[in-house]
Design a protein around this nucleic acid. Structure first.
Lengths: 212, 212
DNA sequence: GTCTATACAACGATAGAC
DNA sequence: GTCTATCGTTGTATAGAC
């Protein structure tokens, strides 16, 4: 298998005007960034299997072969594109300061606000991609371990931070799955206050409560 | 889209012994049941997209065209096949009698015992199929509403049974997702006692605890 | 002139339809 | 069983930057 070298991290956008030309583009490397943007949209809309390399390339306005040239294939492109639509570390940092015993409320509030405005559909397809692709699962596994453990749980509860973090993960993932993917009522259309009042105590127990 | 007529609901099991014969089978309708059995195995092993009509038909020992004839296509076959590998209603009935305040422990114990012995891989691919296929999501939505609500929650807590049931769903689904699909440590390889001690109080609160 | 990002074409595989 | 569509991928010639 041939693996192309990946040149650099240039992300400047250039115009997509005019007909496609052969050969090297004038201004320089916007192709890689265009592919990343297109991949995020198409993967989010259709999931990993549903998103075709051809469709991504077409949306980016470049040749499908560019996917191989810049990323080495569909799967590496997916992993690269999985820069989540919001920066999880930043969102969590906004929510960390304050009473540790109310941290769960703040996390849930931010969580719901984020995904309800961005449109739950995006989260739903993201979860679908994660569920149907091992590379995404691995990536998310590492994300959970790193961000959730180190940045959050360890600051409020020194004992068993890894177990606490994964338990928090079960509650948050389950909530996302039931509300945005399965869309089970009455949870699917419950307002934020109701959900927070119902779930926050449980999440808070995982964060700072007694554990076996 | 062409939808073939589905003859009847015959589900009698017949032997799969003997080599394939041409023409109409003598005893009559074991083909439909054989296809259902094969479909459950193959869908569980490879997910919806990974399971091919050909593979299912081959395992059932019949012609691929039989899928169209009996079910009208791959998708209807999938929905019909989603009689879960274990009967959820039966499993829940085994667990219902006893102290209502310890119901969560019994549910979790049965849950873990069931999926750890059956092999978590089967649950993982099942969740993947659910996440990546709307028909499965609809089916599961109905299952949660019917079985979980009516059979369980309503018997232990009369107030807001639907909300309680979906909340329980978030915890159980999230646990399954993190443990069997994402496989995040230390939860992925934690023993049953640890998980029960950690999760049961939260699940119990959803069942019988105070709610807003 | 050299390097390389690019476009186009085609391959092998495999799915579902008929 | 055949047929068609479409997938991911690869080879190769070319155009432009350096």
């Amino acid at each position: 298998m041939h693996v192309a070298a990946v040149p650099d991290e240039s992300t400047e956008l250039a115009g997509k005007d005019g007909p496609r030309r052969r050969g090297r583009r004038p201004g320089g490397g916007d192709t890689r960034a265009a592919l990343l943007d297109a991949a995020r949209v198409v993967f989010a809309e259709r999931g990993y299997d549903g998103a075709t390399v051809r469709a991504i390339a077409e949306r980016a306005g470049v040749d499908p072969a560019m996917v191989n040239h810049w990323f080495g294939g569909k799967e590496p492109l997916f992993v690269a594109a999985l820069n989540l639509p919001v920066d999880p570390a930043a969102a969590l940092n906004e929510v960390l300061p304050g009473d540790p015993e109310l941290l769960a409320e703040r996390i849930l509030g931010r969580f719901l606000q984020l995904w309800d405005t961005t449109g739950g559909a995006q989260l739903a397809t993201l979860i679908q991609s994660i569920a149907s692709h091992d590379a995404a699962a691995s990536l998310l596994r590492e994300f959970i371990t790193r961000v959730l453990v180190i940045k959050v749980v360890a600051t409020v509860a020194p004992d068993r931070p890894e177990l606490r973090a994964t338990l928090c993960g079960t509650q948050l993932f389950g909530l996302a799955f039931v509300r945005y993917v399965l869309k089970v009522e009455p949870l699917a259309s419950a307002d934020h206050a109701t959900i927070i009042a119902a779930v926050a105590p449980n999440l808070q127990r995982y964060l700072t409560g007694p554990l076996p």
